[in-house]
Structure formats: C-alpha cells, structure tokens
Computed example of a mutant assay.
Amino acid sequence: MISLTNSAKPAFQSRIGRCAIPDDAPTMRTIFRLFQEHPASVGESYLQHMLSSFSFGASMLFASMAALVHGMLPFLFVATGSNTISRLHERMVTHRNRVASRHR
C-alpha cells in the first residue's frame, strides 16, 4: 500500500504546493528502464519504436474507417481492410525476422 505520509521521505515543494513522495515510488531509473525495455527487445530505440507504432496505428485507423464505410457502402473499400492487415503483418514479421537474425 502506498503511504502518503511525510515521515518516510521529506516532502518537496512544487508549484502546486507540498507533495509527499510515496515510499514505493518508482525511481527514475525504473521509469527509464520501463520506457526502453520493450523497444530494445525488438531492436529499436524509444523514438524509432514510437514512430513505428504511430505508423502502424495510423494505418489501422485508416483501415478501420474504410471498414466502417465499407459496412454501409459495400462497393467502396472492398479490400482496403484486409490489404492493410496483410501489409502490416508482413512489415511486423519481416522486422521481427531481421531483428532475430541480428541477435544470433
């Protein structure tokens, strides 16, 4: 359980006022590790992983909108959703294989 008393650690002054630091608050090192661990596991920096994820997300967002329109007007975007899924899967698998070959 998080303790918010001032007895364990001294409070610090912020613009808002005094704030107690919980005893089990993650250290900055832990926070940085959490942000870098997964991107490193797939052979990317944090920024590279963020840009790649944004690219995937934007493609999925476009495909989902096309699928919604296709649901109402079935003659539009006939293959957009499935083509996007195939393309993203290939990008991900190709990248995963490239990273795996570097770590051998």
Rank of each mutant, 00 (worst) to 15 (best):
S82H: 05
S41V: 08
Q13F: 13
M28Y: 13
T84D: 00
S3D: 14
G43M: 02
P26W: 07
M28S: 15
F32G: 03
E44C: 09
S7Y: 05
L68S: 03
H49A: 12
R96Y: 10
R87G: 07
N6Q: 13
V99Q: 02
L76F: 00
S64E: 04
S86V: 11
G71P: 00
Q48T: 04
L88F: 02
S64N: 13
E37M: 06
P22M: 02
H49Q: 06
F12S: 10
P10R: 07
T84N: 02
S45H: 03
V42F: 10
V42K: 03
S7Q: 12
G43V: 00
S7I: 10
A11C: 14
N97M: 06
P26L: 12
R29V: 15
G17K: 04
F35I: 08
I85K: 05
P39Y: 01
A67W: 00
A11R: 11
Q13C: 09
R18F: 14
L4E: 09
S59Q: 11
P22I: 09
T94Y: 04
G71I: 00
S53G: 12
R98V: 05
S14H: 06
A100W: 03
A11N: 09
S82E: 09
R102F: 05
F77T: 00
H38S: 05
P74W: 01
K9P: 03
G71F: 00
F32D: 12
A58S: 12
P26I: 08
V69A: 02
G57A: 10
T80H: 03
R33F: 14
A8V: 08
M72V: 00
N97I: 08
Q48F: 01
L88R: 00
S7A: 07
L73C: 00
H95R: 11
L61M: 13
A8W: 10
R87M: 07
F12C: 03
F54D: 06
R104F: 13
F62Y: 14
V42I: 14
R98I: 07
L73Y: 01
G81R: 01
M65S: 13
M50K: 04
A8I: 12
M50D: 04
P39I: 02
A8R: 03
S53N: 06
P10Q: 12
T5P: 03
M28N: 14
A25W: 03
I31M: 06
R15G: 15
M60E: 13
H95P: 07
C19P: 08
M28R: 15
H95L: 04
